[in-house]
Nucleic acid binder design. Structure first.
Lengths: 223, 223
DNA sequence: CATTAAAATGGACAATCGTCCATGAAAATG
DNA sequence: CATTTTCATGGACGATTGTCCATTTTAATG
């Protein structure tokens, strides 16, 4: 069992990381100072140097934590999905657009770190691995879909589908960042599935999405 | 004619704005200090307060300038496009992915400002108007396409197409931000046109894009 | 309970931040 | 050329930054 010693220690580490993320989400990176952090955490000034060896390392740890949290949430959702690749893709897309994952706090944090990623190698790394893991999950699913279809040498199709889906999700996140109040999760999902049903008509349909009059007016993908 | 007085004045203002953008692109926002700016501009410390009334206003002006530059570049390209809406859309997409617009410097600057946009109203505004103008241009084109098709009440289709295209472009920019060396402009364009040809089969085809073996292996959209 | 070791405190510290102004340079005007 | 007016300079300034350590507190151990 963990002694009260280490228990407190870990608790304070987490408090510091949480304070960084709160501050980044509310005030942005440039206003996230040591004073701001320790005030939010309710701890003393020396703690940052004690536990992380400096502010930069703490911020890096916070970025790492945020990245893990995102991926854990997505993976938890994926556990509840069926085994078929199209079910998995659908769950990833809907998960990535769900309130649990796509909310003001996460989006603020994510884009704040991205903005500094180019100039802070360590942060860029986490930004990258998060995207990398997501890409792997999606690509696996599309690769299975393509394989099932039986078309030879269609690795490029899976790649394009992965690329397009990720780009669309990314764009939707940006939409949310700029206009969190106007954002429509259903509409975002509908557009992505339109793209997918165009690429894999037999695997994806628009039945899941809310039909608009506009959609009904359009000719079906393959009449 | 402009006296040498005002000529120098304007020249120095531009030098300051340019210095901010260079610094933001190279070092990021958090390291763009007054000292850094005036050193790059080769001017004295007091100039910022003299011409802009403070650092924040200068940074804001720089964001504005960058936004204008982007839009001007895109509009210049649009002048060379034909009148048909599909030609205009194609030009916007290819323009937005062209070296002229999508390069390391612009991307660094753009995402750096985005990261702070949520917490700096003035910057968010320019980030917004840039996107707004682009959205307007694209939506106009799609609205014409939909109107030509003659399907009644398909305003939603134009909206979806606009939304999807912007999201895809946004995603491609992020791709470039994270992996400028691996980025493939042709592939990015191909994926976007695949989306568009799925939505408007009669208006967009994939002929313009480089065909891969994978693409040939796939069944045509509507056989 | 006494002792040891680990963890937490909060202020000292130099460095840097952005602002502002007294001074000097230079162009425009008479 | 003399005068006026605008622009440019660079250092002073207080505030704030992040780091670090001497001290105190507190949990663990004998």
């Amino acid at each position: 069992m963990a002694g009260k010693r280490e228990q407190n220690r870990e608790q304070n580490r987490q408090a510091l990381i949480g304070a960084v993320l709160d501050s980044v989400a509310e005030k942005g990176i440039s206003e996230t100072s040591v004073s701001e952090i320790i005030q939010r955490a309710g701890l003393s000034r020396g703690m940052i140097h004690l536990h992380f060896g400096g502010k930069d390392n703490l911020v890096q740890a916070a970025a790492h934590h945020s990245s893990e949290e995102y991926y854990d949430g997505l993976e938890a959702l994926l556990q509840t999905a069926g085994d078929s690749p199209q079910e998995r893709v659908e769950m990833i897309v809907r998960g990535d657009l769900s309130e649990r994952v796509l909310n003001r706090r996460n989006v603020s944090i994510w884009y704040a770190f991205r903005g500094e990623a180019r100039n802070r190698t360590a942060i860029a790394e986490y930004s990258d691995t998060r995207d990398g893991r997501l890409r792997g999950m999606i690509h696996n699913a599309f690769a299975r879909i393509v394989r099932e279809a039986g078309t030879p040498d269609a690795s490029g199709a899976a790649r394009d589908a992965t690329h397009g889906t990720l780009a669309l999700l990314e764009g939707m996140w940006t939409d949310f960042l700029l206009h969190p109040d106007r954002f429509d999760r259903e509409e975002a999902a509908r557009i992505i599935f339109r793209f997918l049903s165009a690429m894999f008509p037999t695997h994806f349909s628009l039945k899941g999405a809310v039909r608009t009059t506009a959609e009904e007016a359009l000719p079906p993908p393959c009449a």
